[in-house]
Nucleic acid binder design. Structure first.
Lengths: 332, 332
DNA sequence: GTGAAAGCGCTAACAA
DNA sequence: TTGTTAGCGCTTTCAC
């Protein structure tokens, strides 16, 4: 029914090996033979079976991608970066959402290894000990994208979260603020808790400002919770906000304006993401640029090096960040 | 090196067939045998090779998903709907971006069929004749998600684009508007050109309002172009805007406000998407609810029916839409 | 309830 | 330059 390499070989009066060579662009085929085979392939509508090929060659040209949630624009951006580079290197992608659920992550890893992917790009706020153990034991290479593994056992691509947060808070401090609120994502996330929050504290300490726990509000990264956070903070009267992502920043802006305050005159806001939303907000958001697309792309590129057994010059890649100044802060 | 079904069989003193039965939860295994096999599987850390399984069984439990661009929130939402249902039915997803490029679409189809996916969910603004031909010839089932094939040859899941647009425009007409601008996405898209635009024209005609071509501005679905469109339209002074998606609607709102006009008092706006953004806009957007997640989920569900040779009661599924009234229109 | 054996469609030595 | 021949690791009859 379906036409196989054997059918082509028979019709072209050559061996399967020759057909295989033609299909795989092996140079050791006489042009005339190649042409003849190609003609038969065309006539029969032969399409190589990648599953059989994968079994024989032990390569599937497929990589697994495990991310929290593709419907979240940050992860979607990351995924696009991964996919573009994957396509460039002729890999396909098996994409799965983990919802940051450890069991799901573990199971997804297992499934993908079972499917014999050639490599895996993984993203999660927390890499549990068990997950780490499984990753280290994995027969196929894994790269962490925008995810921290403090043991540095697994390759990863990140930005300097601490430095970025420090610089953002310092900018607020330099603008004269004393009461700087921090609307932060879940503290279960390593990056939030160990990097951003620490940077916030140290930037304040370095400026001689006392740390006030009341100024920290943990949110689930959503617009609604950010709005609520601002309402909760009203009694404290913060004059500046450092906010963990663009969606929450828009919530902050709206809530602050509801209080009758003007941005940036009365209150300044710095976001941390710099997605398309940052320019769609009014006022437009000053934001730490968190290059998700690039992190995805570089992660995938790094993975290709592992898959090809290329030399790895740097296992823990740190990409540059910058602060994009727009209208939600007073700039020079 | 890697442990195979054969190793397990040897260690457990049973045949490969028995191990296979255990792994596949076949009931024809004595409990004692099952237990023994399971123990060996555990000890050896055996993980079934899905590629070998796929070759032998001719099923990969993988479906292909071809969408324009995962970094666009509409398609990301769709993808999440697809993935959730796929997971429910134990399928994995190979996700690829086509950027609506016909050659890429053709080539992706080919690649996925080569990878022996069990089914494909496809989305694109235009399904060319050649693409259609390939789809009809495809040995594996294909479902179109949010995409029109007027020949109805391929299964599909959509909403009533015409009805939704008609109702939106009628609402504007009923609110007394005569100069209703239509900020529409690319007219290369079937849905825009053959459904939405037609609905717009007929809703006006039915209200006895002359069609004015100048009120139609074709955009690339982006915030920036929508803003420009409003500026271009300034001389015509539209009093209402029907806009093809939320991002553009926000552009329209900002541009209208720059003209010193108030929404909805001076100008009304109806969007067409109803994403998270609709609630994050100020004023919040009245919008036709285009249920992308559901379209993805239903498409995938429909695909499972084809893959299982279940009875298909409806090949062309039409999902309900509704209009979500918020602040960008005057409501009763 | 269990086993033997024939493939699934291809790649990759190794020969020729 | 081309062909022969083992597998790759599993499922699936068909016997027993």
């Amino acid at each position: 029914m379906t036409v196989t390499i054997y059918d082509v070989a028979r019709e072209a009066n050559v061996s399967m090996a020759t057909v295989s060579r033609v299909v795989n662009a092996n140079q050791n085929v006489k042009p005339a033979t190649r042409k003849k085979v190609l003609k038969v392939i065309e006539e029969l509508g032969y399409r190589p079976n990648a599953v059989a090929r994968g079994l024989a060659s032990k390569k599937t040209t497929t990589v697994g991608v495990i991310i929290p949630d593709i419907s979240n624009s940050m992860y979607a951006e990351l995924a696009r970066g991964i996919e573009d580079i994957a396509t460039m290197y002729r890999y396909n992608i098996i994409l799965s959402n983990s919802d940051q659920n450890e069991n799901k992550e573990l199971q997804l890893l297992e499934t993908m290894l079972g499917k014999q992917v050639d490599g895996i790009v993984f993203m999660s706020d927390v890499i549990s000990a068990e997950l780490l153990k499984e990753m280290e034991r994995s027969p196929t290479p894994i790269v962490l994208a925008g995810s921290i593994d403090e043991s540095a056992a697994i390759a990863s691509v990140n930005i300097d979260y601490y430095g970025a947060a420090y610089e953002a808070v310092k900018k607020l401090v330099d603008n004269g603020h004393q009461k700087i609120a921090f609307i932060i994502g879940p503290l279960t996330s390593m990056i939030n808790k160990e990097y951003k929050l620490k940077a916030y504290k140290e930037a304040l300490a370095d400026a001689g400002i006392d740390y006030d726990e009341k100024l920290i509000v943990e949110c689930n990264n959503s617009y609604d919770e950010a709005m609520e956070a601002v309402q909760t903070l009203a009694p404290v009267e913060p004059t500046a906000y450092f906010v963990s992502n663009d969606e929450m920043s828009i919530g902050v802006i709206h809530a602050v304006e509801e209080q009758g305050k003007k941005i940036p005159m009365d209150v300044e806001v710095i976001s941390y993401e710099n997605s398309k939303l940052a320019r769609m907000a009014r006022p437009m958001l000053t934001s730490v640029a968190f290059p998700l697309y690039d992190i995805g792309a570089v992660s995938m590129r790094l993975l290709t090096k592992y898959m090809n057994n290329e030399e790895i010059e740097e296992k823990q890649v740190i990409l540059p960040y910058r602060i994009e100044e727009r209208e939600s802060t007073k700039n020079d």
